[in-house]
C-alpha cells in the first residue's frame, strides 16, 4: 500500500518558485487500480514521480508498505524501485539495441535471477501481453502498441508490488490504446496494484478509483461505480 502525507513539491528556477504539489494526502491500498487525472500542469505526473521514488518531495512523506521512502539514499531508492515497483513510460522507453526479450530480462538479471530463469519469466511475460511472436525483434521493428506492451511485460515480469504507468496510451492510436488498457485491466484483476496517470477520460473508466488533481491539490477522489469494461 501507498500512503502519501502532506506532499509538497516546489520547483525553483532562480528566484521563481513554482508550487506544483500543495499538500497531497492519499492512501492507496494493495490491489487497487488508481487513475490520476487532471489538466496539464495539475501536478499528476509530479505526484506519480514522488510516489514512485523517481523524485524527492520538497516536504511530506511517501510510505510504501510502511517504509518511509524520502529518507532512503539514492542507491536504496534504486534498489527499492527494482524490488517493489514497475514502470510503464509514455514513450515506451525500450532500449533500442536490445530485443524485446532482452529488454524484459534486464531487471530480472539485476534482481539476481539466473539467465535461464530470467528468459523463461520474460517469455511468460511477453506471452501474457500476446507478444510471443516478436520476442527477438528490436524495438524499431515493433509498432507503438507492441512496444508499449513490451514495456508492460518488462514492468510486470519481476512481479512488482506496485505498477506505475505514466500516460501509457498517450502515444497510441485508439486500437492500440484499448489493447494496452485491457492488459492493465487483466493485471489488476490478477491482483496487481496499479497507479496510472492519464488525461484521457475514456481510459480512466478502466480504473477502480479516479483521483482528480487541480493546481497541485486533490479536488476529487472517487471510487468508480459505473460498469467497468470487462476483459474478455
Amino acid at each position: 500500500m501507498i500512503q502519501v502525507k502532506n506532499l509538497i513539491k516546489n520547483f525553483e528556477n532562480g528566484t521563481i518558485i513554482t508550487n506544483v504539489l500543495r499538500g497531497v494526502d492519499l492512501y492507496i491500498p494493495k490491489g487497487q487500480f488508481v487513475a490520476i487525472m487532471g489538466r496539464s500542469g495539475a501536478g499528476k505526473s509530479t505526484l506519480m514521480y514522488q510516489m514512485s521514488l523517481l523524485d524527492i518531495p520538497t516536504e511530506g512523506t511517501v510510505l510504501i508498505d510502511g517504509i518511509q521512502t524520502d529518507i532512503l539514499t539514492e542507491q536504496e531508492r534504486t534498489d527499492f524501485r527494482l524490488r517493489k515497483l514497475g514502470f510503464i513510460f509514455q514513450d515506451y522507453a525500450l532500449l533500442p539495441e536490445l530485443t524485446a526479450v532482452e529488454n524484459v530480462i534486464i531487471p530480472l538479471l539485476m534482481r539476481g535471477m539466473s539467465k535461464i530463469d530470467a528468459i523463461e519469466q520474460a517469455y511468460n511475460a511477453l506471452d501474457s501481453v500476446d507478444l510471443s511472436h516478436v520476442r527477438d525483434h528490436r524495438s524499431s521493428q515493433l509498432s507503438g502498441g507492441e512496444q508499449q506492451r513490451v514495456s508492460i511485460a518488462r514492468a510486470v515480469a519481476p512481479q512488482p508490488d506496485i505498477l506505475f504507468a505514466d500516460e501509457p496510451t498517450a502515444n497510441l492510436d485508439s486500437v492500440s490504446g484499448d489493447s494496452v488498457m485491457r492488459v492493465l485491466k487483466k493485471l489488476h484483476e490478477d491482483g496487481q496494484t496499479i497507479v496510472m496517470v492519464t488525461h484521457e477520460p475514456e481510459y480512466s473508466i478502466y480504473a477502480q478509483r479516479v483521483i482528480y488533481l487541480e493546481d497541485g491539490r486533490v479536488v476529487s477522489d472517487d471510487i468508480q461505480t459505473e460498469k467497468i469494461p470487462t476483459v474478455s
Binding site: 542507491q75 534498489d79 527499492f80 514502470f87 531487471p107 539485476m110
Partner: peptide, 12 residues
Amino acid sequence: YIGILKGIGIRA
C-alpha cells in the same frame, strides 16, 4: 535511456 535504466532499478 540511462535515466530509464536507473528508473527501472538498474544500479549505477
